[in-house]
Amino acid sequence: MRARPIVLVVFLLQGCAYHRLAVRNPNPADQYYHSVNSTAFGWGAAEEQKVADKCETSLLSEVRVRTSLGRSLITVLTLGAVQPARIEYRCSKMPTQEGTIEP
């Protein structure tokens, strides 16, 4: 009986897990994240390719992959056969001048 309130509180306080990849010197063109829902089937064997179509320059400044308790439960209950995630990205500005890339 005491476990019910604890489970309810844990369920209501669920959070999201983030994986973030950013470039060293970001040059964001916009301050908003554009999101795409992605689902991999068959342990990653079949996944529809998603395109970052909001970027005019085809350059990305930052990429985040989010998952939540519900998405994680789907992955666990299907033993990894279905893996939903939300991908968020920010576009970069077009470089203004030519230069060299330092390693």
Results as ranks from 00 to 15, higher is better:
1 M>Q: 09
3 A>Q: 15
4 R>A: 14
5 P>L: 10
6 I>L: 15
6 I>N: 07
6 I>W: 09
6 I>Q: 13
7 V>N: 10
9 V>D: 10
9 V>A: 15
9 V>F: 15
10 V>K: 07
11 F>Y: 08
12 L>N: 05
13 L>N: 09
13 L>Y: 07
14 Q>L: 04
14 Q>P: 01
14 Q>R: 06
15 G>K: 03
15 G>D: 04
16 C>H: 07
16 C>P: 00
17 A>E: 09
17 A>K: 10
17 A>H: 11
17 A>T: 10
18 Y>F: 11
19 H>S: 12
19 H>I: 06
20 R>N: 07
20 R>F: 00
21 L>S: 08
22 A>F: 06
22 A>Q: 13
24 R>L: 13
24 R>G: 06
25 N>G: 06
26 P>C: 02
26 P>V: 03
27 N>I: 04
28 P>Y: 01
29 A>E: 04
30 D>T: 10
31 Q>F: 03
31 Q>W: 01
32 Y>S: 07
32 Y>T: 07
33 Y>N: 03
34 H>Y: 13
35 S>W: 08
36 V>P: 01
36 V>D: 06
37 N>M: 11
39 T>G: 06
39 T>S: 15
42 G>T: 03
42 G>D: 03
42 G>F: 11
43 W>C: 01
43 W>A: 03
43 W>Y: 15
45 A>D: 07
45 A>F: 08
45 A>Y: 10
46 A>H: 06
46 A>E: 03
46 A>L: 11
46 A>R: 10
48 E>I: 07
48 E>K: 12
48 E>T: 12
49 Q>I: 13
49 Q>P: 06
50 K>S: 13
50 K>N: 14
50 K>Y: 07
51 V>Q: 14
52 A>K: 04
52 A>D: 04
52 A>P: 04
52 A>H: 06
54 K>W: 04
54 K>R: 13
55 C>W: 01
56 E>G: 11
56 E>F: 04
57 T>L: 07
57 T>V: 07
58 S>L: 12
59 L>N: 05
59 L>H: 04
59 L>S: 07
62 E>T: 11
63 V>H: 06
63 V>Y: 02
64 R>F: 04
65 V>Q: 10
66 R>F: 01
67 T>H: 06
68 S>Y: 04
69 L>P: 00
70 G>R: 11
70 G>C: 10
70 G>N: 08
71 R>T: 14
71 R>N: 13
71 R>Q: 15
74 I>S: 05
75 T>P: 02
76 V>S: 13
77 L>I: 14
77 L>W: 13
78 T>S: 15
79 L>I: 15
80 G>I: 13
81 A>W: 05
81 A>I: 12
82 V>D: 04
84 P>Y: 08
85 A>V: 15
87 I>Y: 06
88 E>W: 00
88 E>F: 00
89 Y>G: 00
89 Y>H: 03
90 R>E: 02
90 R>A: 01
91 C>T: 00
95 P>K: 05
95 P>T: 09
96 T>I: 12
97 Q>H: 11
98 E>S: 13
98 E>M: 12
98 E>F: 13
99 G>T: 05
101 I>P: 01
101 I>S: 11
101 I>N: 12
102 E>G: 05
103 P>E: 12
